[in-house]
Design a protein around this nucleic acid. Structure first.
Lengths: 350, 350
DNA sequence: TTGTATGCGTTATCAT
DNA sequence: ATGATAACGCATACAA
């Protein structure tokens, strides 16, 4: 349990002032190259490590950015975090993470913790239940940039990173219609969240654009979990006439729905075509493979953090109320392919 | 951009000394109850927030713990992190995370960052390539506790949190043998890592215990990725005589292997029975559903961090070189059930 | 190019 | 029960 060595120790060792040591270690231009070298050698040799806390205390910033995420154990958010961590690590920033577990309450308390931790910037994907953005005001008021991604909300000064959910949903729904579906159900999440509200809009507009009727009965709202998918399936099975297509707002839910449907003796896509969302690994495992929409988590994380860093090191540019759209596309697999589907024997057996 | 308010501001406001404010805010017993109340009211009213950095600088600890994990985008590690975050959040600790991406190099650099960040404790699951534990010595030497989980290594002073991989593998292999398999292949990862080495041992011992021969040809080493599963499948298809059972060290790999096998016209479990590892969601989606072994990620995370916290707040107990075993069990599903498998028509169609 | 002096906000020590 | 003072390690304004 040795003692930490400080710039004072190095200064004494080299007969220099602590100031010079500090400057050299921070690569200040006004330090002699040779002195700089001597100092960095000595520092390395003596096992010096900078004290973040003293430095932060002095500089009034933390080199830490905060992330509030609905849940950690989701393939999409894992990918996002992976992207964030990658960039941040290269830039020498630290990341602190907390999960809201989809509750407003927890999200508020997380925000408070982040604020008290004096993060230099905040990355947020909103919980299902979040009602307003009050809890982020302290950041805004102090000029601490906040960037929302995926589950976003409009706020002056905050940038949003998203995909075009409306368009994606429109594409998915249109695809179902082109496959011959005329009675389509949409399973989605809490409409407070843009992602679900926008997908519902895209769903509606697509029906409209193809001259199909829309009624509220065609929308099933839920938690988008495995259990929710099962429950939705049984609701769908009870509908009459039975729907011939389903557009689900995530793959987890779509997959469990398909499982339940198959168990009930239906065949996908012949009896019901299904489309999911996110392009999780699971979508390539379910049989039939799931048609879905890509949601570039890793890229979204990278972009979000880059935008945040840009604002932190603000070279003036503010980008207020701006939204950045990332590309996403429909990946067509068997679960929606009514036309090309060979009349498999499986359908008979079920 | 208002100015931060400090204990001095509160002190001035209430005509007290900063010392008393500090004590009150830290719930020091030697402060009058009523004064305490006045102070905490004033603090709340004035919007005071403690400055971690000043406090840390003074107290010489950070209330932050570090986590080094092979990859963030894995269901198992997501679950672990979820567990860790949950406990830490309750205890008022911060978590900083970095991923080694399975390389020794990156793990070393991560460790250095963590050390420079002056984490109060470190949680680690080793990368594939890690050769030694040198990079953790600085922590040990400074009395900073390090806890390994899942991918662990023996080290004086460090606690390991694991499941009994040997026993689990033994159970899995025995199950295959009981199902009538006599020519079993084991697909696993880098044997530097305990998890893979122990599973291989369990595999061997099970064969031995049932009087079956073992040869090195029965072991396929790989990255345990989706691609690795495919590759392993083609190797298996080229073997003669063809194996009738496979025990795979993770579900991702097992699933892609099954997919390839099916594509080649084989039926699982009739032609080849398969068992995976981890009980990821994907194991309940693949057809046939995958027999697998539970690996309690969330619990492992919780236990690991609790042990770490115990050592940090060291009430004397050291638990050096100790290992904590968590329960895990075999979950039997269709992919290994040769005996009960109805001769499905699917087998004929393939 | 280098050095001196000071303050960042807290907490520990030692008084009262 | 409360207060005065110093110290944690660093970075900057100012001086030389």
């Amino acid at each position: 349990m040795e003692k930490d060595i400080t710039i004072y120790d190095i200064a004494r060792e080299l007969n220099l002032s602590p100031t010079t040591i500090s400057r050299a270690l921070n690569d200040h231009p006004a330090v002699n190259k040779k002195t700089k070298q001597r100092i960095s050698d000595a520092a390395a040799q003596m096992g010096y490590r900078s004290n973040f806390f003293a430095s932060n205390l002095r500089k009034q910033h933390t080199n830490t950015i905060g992330l509030i995420v609905p849940r950690l154990d989701s393939p999409f958010h894992s990918a996002v975090i992976s992207g964030i961590e990658k960039v941040l690590n290269e830039e020498g920033y630290n990341l602190i993470i907390s999960q809201s577990l989809e509750t407003f309450q927890k999200e508020k308390s997380n925000a408070k913790t982040m604020f008290d931790s004096r993060v230099d910037g905040l990355l947020v994907s909103l919980s299902f239940e979040t009602e307003d953005l009050q809890h982020f005001e302290p950041f805004i008021n102090r000029g601490i940039p906040v960037v929302f991604y995926d589950r976003v909300a409009e706020h002056r000064n905050c940038t949003n990173i998203v995909i075009d959910n409306l368009q994606a949903a429109h594409k998915a729904t249109s695809h179902l219609i082109e496959q011959g579906c005329t009675n389509i159900v949409h399973i989605t999440g809490n409409l407070k969240r843009n992602v679900y509200a926008d997908r519902l809009k895209g769903f509606k507009y697509a029906l409209l654009d193809h001259g199909l009727p829309f009624s509220e009965d065609q929308v099933i709202l839920g938690e988008m979990t495995e259990a929710a998918g099962q429950k939705a399936a049984s609701q769908i099975l009870a509908m009459s006439p039975r729907p011939d297509g389903i557009f689900v707002s995530n793959d987890t839910c779509a997959v469990s729905c398909i499982k339940a449907l198959k168990q009930a003796g239906l065949s996908v896509p012949q009896d019901i075509a299904v489309i999911g969302f996110n392009n999780d690994a699971i979508s390539r495992v379910i049989e039939p493979n799931l048609t879905t929409i890509t949601n570039p988590g890793q890229e979204m994380g990278e972009v979000a953090v880059k935008v945040l860093l840009l604002q932190i090191n603000g070279t003036g540019e503010r980008i207020p109320g701006n939204t950045i759209n990332l590309r996403s596309e429909l990946i067509v697999r068997e679960s929606s392919l009514k036309s090309k589907a060979k009349s498999k024997k499986k359908s008979v057996l079920a």
